[in-house]
Structures are given as structure tokens and as C-alpha cells.
Write a protein that binds this DNA or RNA. Structure first.
Lengths: 207, 207
DNA sequence: TCAAGATGTGAGCTGATGCTCATATTATGG
DNA sequence: CCATAATATGAGCATCAGCTCACATCTTGA
């Protein structure tokens, strides 16, 4: 017995069935990303998104129940682009040294945050969170990348997760701050981040 | 030759001269903080602020040129409250060990972020930044707290500042993430943060 | 005491924007 | 070929919040 959710509240009112409508929806998300990056959430208007997408406002609301749903579609697209840039732990051999692992991960995180940096900041800082459905999946995947590192230094599963979270949050903090100072290119920042991550992992091992 | 800035664009249109108007202004900022924490930036309306403050909307606009100026006044008040909670480096003897210093600073940072946590998050995440005039002063002061630590491990002034920024950004990242998970009370988080800061400082010393 | 300045008031103007709906156009499948 | 479903359109409705302004009230200082 599945509860019926009225179209007005679903992420998408109608599923686009024909090719025509599928490209309309893609165009709206694509245009939305551009408008959002350019104007920011406060000046992100559905009418402009439709205009830029070359669609009518009516078409837009045929597939998205409201403004926020568009932003959420944009966020999903962006987050999966991020994950694609991060080194995949499954594909790496276990043969790498800890320092090599740290190097790769941090380089990946910096590269990921260099993708459409402005959009990234706006998605994080300005767009209200709301439905965490996808974010949860994303965060799990993201954390997993760090657990690869902590597992090398630690056995305990629970402490492992905690350490991974600490690392992830610390690195995010540094990288976001660096980005807002437009210092993401700086190799000095990268070096210090790696130093910090390595030092922490070493300290964990000793404790 | 000072440039004349029209009242419409100044932080405050009119300076409140009498006691009566001074308490009106304070009441507006106080009420504004409550409304902002409760409703969030998107639903932060000047009319409600005035109503809650027990003042008229006209009075509000007599002293604040626009909605954002109120938010900025709230931010200033909040940031200076934060600084007041952080241990003052000037007042501490230099006699404390490095670990003691780390303990005190991290405890202070956690305590600072426990003050009106919801307002804090909204001020950081939702309210558009705009005029960085005060924030710059705040950040300088804030960074200074970390430089106390890095100076112990390092001599080089430039690398010192860089290291302080790295530490500050990392700790902020962890603390904000913990706060949004409502884990700011957790002593485990505090322990790990301290471990990370200490480990990084040690690594700096050795390099 | 009383002008002049400081302060307080709130109805309502103004502009903006999310979203609907009646209608038109295009595609599909039998 | 045509009935039905899918898709597209955009004028305009409904709402809402920032802010103004003409006027009232209070305080100050001479």
C-alpha cells in the first residue's frame, strides 16, 4: 500500500516520456545551473530560467513542482559531477603507501572544488537544504573516500568513521575557505592540507 | 576631503541621539536577532521585526536604510559576543604548555559556537555577506588566537600566518559540521579536534 | 513657555515573482 | 487517419514584503 503523493509535492510532476520533453527538462536544469551561478539564489527566478532555457514558464512547471525542485535537480547533477572527479577507492590497488593515498585524495578534492566553483558555493551557502535524500547518498560515498585512509591507521570501525568525518570536515573547511579567498590554485595550501591529514593519521596510529 | 555618503546607503541613516531612540534601536537589533534565528533569512521580514520590537516600521527605517543593514548589525553584535568567549591571548601567561594552549583554545571555540547556535548558522549560511568591513576586523582578531599556537612551533612570520589560517579553517569546518549534526556537545569530537591540531603543530615543528 | 528639532506612526504604494490555466500544437499507436 | 495522450505556450492572477511619506507626538534648550 504505497501512499499517493500528489504531483504538486513530488520532485517531478510528470515524467518526460518523449525525447522532446526529455531535452526540455535537461535544458531547464542546464539553464538553471547557469542562472543560479550568475545571479545567486536570491535573484534566481523561474521566469528567467525558462527564458534562458528557451522554454516557456508553463513547460517548466509541467515538470518541476516549484522553484526549489529545480535547485535540487541542479544540486544532484553537480554532486555527481564532483564524485566523478574524486579518485575511486575501488579502482585503486591497495598497494599505494599512505602518503600516496593522501596525495591523491587531496588532489582530487581540490580538483572537485575547482569545477564550477561559483555554482558550488551558491549551492552550499545560499540554497536552502530541504530534502536531504540525495545528499545522504552523496555524503556516504564521500565519507567512504576518507575511510580508506583511516582504515590504514585504525582497526576499530566506529572510531574509524569518526576519524573519517573529522578529516572530511576539516579538509572541506580549509578548501572552502581557500576557494572564497581564490587561493584554491595555491600549492602551498595543498601542501599544508596534506601535512595536516598525514599528521593526524599518524597520531591516530600511535594512540 | 571626505566623500559624502547619502543617508540611504549608510549603515545607519540617523544616529539615535536621545536615550529613547537608542533603546528603540537596541530593541530592533534584539528583536531582529530573535526573528532571524526563528524564521531564517528568507522569512526575515522588516515588518515582523518592527512588530516584535514593539516599534513601528517607520521607526525602523529611520535608523536602518534597509533590511540587510539590520542583519549586519545583528552580525556585529553576534561576532563580538563570540570574541568575548574566546580565551584572550593577551591575558594568558606565556607559561602554558602547547597542549594546554590547544585545550583552552578549542574549548573556547566550541563554547563560542554553542552561543545561539541557530542564529550563528543562519548568519553564516543564509545571510548574504556584503560589507566585509567588520568581518575583516573580526577575522584578524580570530586568527590572532591561532597564531599564538603556531608561533610556538614556528618562527617564520609568513608561514606562521598560513599555518594559523589552515588551523582556523579546519577547526571551523569540523565545528560547523558537528553543530549541524547537533554533536557539538560530544567530547569525542573535542578530543579529535585537539588531536588534529596538536599533530599538525608537531609536524610543523619537525619540518 | 514655546519653537525647533528629534522621534514615532502605520496605511498603503510599488514592484517583483512564483505559479496557474485555458488553449494550442505535436506525437503516438491502433 | 484519427482519437487520445503528451507537450508547449504565455498572459496574467495572487501574493507578498520592502519601503515611503505625511502627519502626530515628545524632548530639549533658551
Amino acid at each position: 500500500m504505497t501512499t499517493r503523493i500528489p504531483a504538486k509535492h513530488r520532485a517531478m510532476r510528470k515524467a518526460p516520456k518523449q525525447l522532446r520533453s526529455q531535452s526540455t527538462v535537461e535544458g531547464i536544469v542546464e539553464a538553471g545551473a547557469r542562472v543560479l551561478a550568475q545571479r545567486g539564489w536570491a535573484k534566481f527566478t523561474t521566469n528567467e530560467v525558462a527564458r534562458v532555457a528557451g522554454a516557456s514558464i508553463g513547460s517548466l512547471y509541467q515538470y518541476f513542482p516549484n522553484k526549489l525542485a529545480i535547485a535540487e535537480a541542479i544540486r544532484q547533477r553537480h554532486l555527481s559531477q564532483l564524485l566523478a572527479v574524486l579518485p575511486d577507492p575501488g579502482k585503486q590497488g591497495k598497494a599505494l603507501s599512505l602518503n600516496r593515498h593522501v596525495d591523491q585524495l587531496i588532489d582530487g578534492v581540490v580538483a572537485a572544488h575547482s569545477i564550477n566553483q561559483k555554482l558550488h558555493r551558491i549551492l552550499l551557502d545560499e540554497v536552502p537544504l530541504a530534502a536531504r535524500s540525495f545528499d545522504t547518498d552523496f555524503e556516504r560515498e564521500y565519507l567512504h573516500r576518507y575511510e580508506i585512509l583511516t582504515r590504514v591507521a585504525l582497526d576499530d570501525g566506529a572510531r574509524n568513521l569518526m576519524a573519517a568525518r573529522i578529516l572530511a570536515d576539516a579538509v572541506e573547511g580549509i578548501v572552502h575557505a581557500a576557494a572564497s579567498r581564490e587561493e584554491l590554485g595555491s600549492s602551498a595550501v595543498r601542501i599544508e592540507v596534506k601535512r595536516m591529514v598525514s599528521a593526524y593519521l599518524l597520531a591516530l596510529q600511535r594512540a
